[in-house]
């Protein structure tokens, strides 16, 4: 009955759009992982290009959802103290998708040669980054429905980010100790930094989220 009121209708629409936005983030993270693993296996194949396109589509859809959410928030929904936080969260979370896309584009355009000896390191790094992003998506969901759960999720994001830093440092040491050309070493270092940077950004979003959650709980 209440759903017939326009305010509740608008509220349901907005809830659904926010849920969809974070679903895009989680979906992109799965595809990203598959794309990197595929690249390590067979380079910039057709399948890799398809996955890159899928991440691009997800990023575009998320952008359009973000714009829609922003407009709805500013037009007629949400009291300002919540509005600013939701906008900040959506905008910074959207950057994670952009980072996924740009990392895959870099692999597709620059086609770095990743030798077998580094393959496992890249896999481990990607897995850890994806874990951090997945946990961030859970934390974002929790912020809207159960803010008490946010600190637990955020601790895991921080943990995975630290682990990703450790793996990336080990990988860079291994790269620079290897016998490959210096130019290749520098090239691979940039890719390690690019992938690790996604986890760093996830941690930044989680830090913001912690403040927003504290505000909701007080």
């Amino acid at each position: 009955m209440f759903e017939n009121f326009s305010l509740f209708k608008r509220t349901s629409e907005l809830e659904s759009k926010i849920d969809q936005f974070f679903e895009k983030l989680a979906e992109a993270s799965v595809i990203y992982r598959l794309a990197v693993r595929g690249y390590l296996r067979e380079g910039a194949s057709e399948e890799f290009k398809e996955r890159l396109d899928t991440v691009g589509e997800l990023e575009t859809q998320a952008d359009s959802l973000r714009r829609d959410i922003e407009q709805k928030l500013y037009k007629n929904i949400l009291i300002p103290d919540s509005r600013g936080d939701v906008l900040g969260l959506i905008e910074t979370a959207d950057d994670v998708l952009t980072l996924f896309q740009s990392s895959l584009w870099a692999l597709y355009i620059e086609k770095p040669t990743i030798h077998d000896q580094f393959s496992n390191g890249f896999k481990r790094l990607t897995n850890m980054v994806i874990k951090a992003v997945d946990e961030l998506a859970l934390s974002c969901h929790a912020f809207f429905r159960n803010p008490h759960a946010v600190p637990a999720h955020n601790s895991k994001v921080t943990l995975y980010e630290k682990e990703a830093d450790k793996i990336s440092s080990e990988l860079k040491v291994k790269i620079f100790e290897s016998k490959i050309k210096l130019v290749e070493k520098l090239h691979l270092r940039d890719f390690v930094n690019g992938i690790d940077g996604i986890a760093d950004h996830a941690e930044d979003v989680a830090d913001r989220l912690s403040i927003y959650a504290i505000k909701r709980l007080t």
Binding site: L7, E15, I77, I79, V86, F143, N146, R216
Partner: peptide, 17 residues
């Protein structure tokens, strides 16, 4: 608020009313 576990958006709508 804790018992009902309302989403932020819905809670906000209730607050407005």
């Amino acid at each position: 608020g804790r018992k009902m576990n309302l989403s932020l958006i819905r809670l906000d709508a209730y607050k407005r009313i």
